[in-house]
């Protein structure tokens, strides 16, 4: 079986990293992933051109809708369990219950958002750290590409040619 190799090009400059990604897409190498210390719009523009948007929003929306009905129904259910008129308001008083519904909308929306974020970004996942360079949380942009065993040197040379300051090889 042919062994696949992964090479990381490390760039101090964002524009050079973007240039390397664009060149990689046109080359015979396969772009695997990109690490960056900040959410780079330039990298997003290159990588997300043909991809659908993140699905986190659907989780947030679902959480919000569930929360709204949970809050409203909780208030209605508890009031109807003991039909006592308080402060002259009807037992099921929709205006005050809207406040409970609103707060639950926000609470469940945020909880949905967190679930969406964790599941979509696949966190927590500590084994990621085995294939990672610590400089990528500081000042470097890391571009990881895949190649055949025989093309490893060529891929490393490619990154150096694109202005990469350092390189690293991962064997998966």
């Amino acid at each position: 079986m042919e062994v696949k190799r992964y090479v990381m090009g490390l760039f101090r400059d964002e524009d050079r990293a973007v240039g390397a990604i664009e060149s990689l897409k046109k080359s015979s190498f396969k772009l695997h992933k990109v690490h960056s210390p900040v959410p780079s719009h330039k990298i997003m523009n290159v990588l997300d051109r043909d991809r659908p948007q993140s699905k986190v929003g659907y989780f947030t929306l679902a959480g919000g809708i569930i929360g709204f009905f949970t809050g409203f129904l909780l208030a209605i259910y508890t009031a109807s369990e003991w039909s006592l008129i308080v402060s002259g308001k009807p037992v099921i008083a929709l205006v005050p219950f809207f406040i409970v519904g609103f707060e639950f909308t926000i609470l469940f929306g945020v909880l949905g958002n967190i679930i969406g974020l964790l599941t979509q970004a696949r966190l927590p996942r500590w084994k990621n750290l085995k294939q990672y360079d610590e400089r990528c949380s500081g000042e470097h942009f890391g571009v990881v590409a895949q190649c055949d065993d025989a093309d490893q040197d060529r891929l490393m040379a490619f990154f150096i040619e694109k202005g990469g300051d350092a390189k690293r090889i991962y064997v998966y």
């Binding site: 960056s36 210390p37 959410p39 997003m44 966190l123 996942r125 949380s137």
Partner: peptide, 17 residues
Amino acid sequence: SLGWTGEHEQWRHYTRG
């Protein structure tokens, strides 16, 4: 840090979230 590596895929969902 939950294994955060600053991978593009993480940032994509993180910025949205």
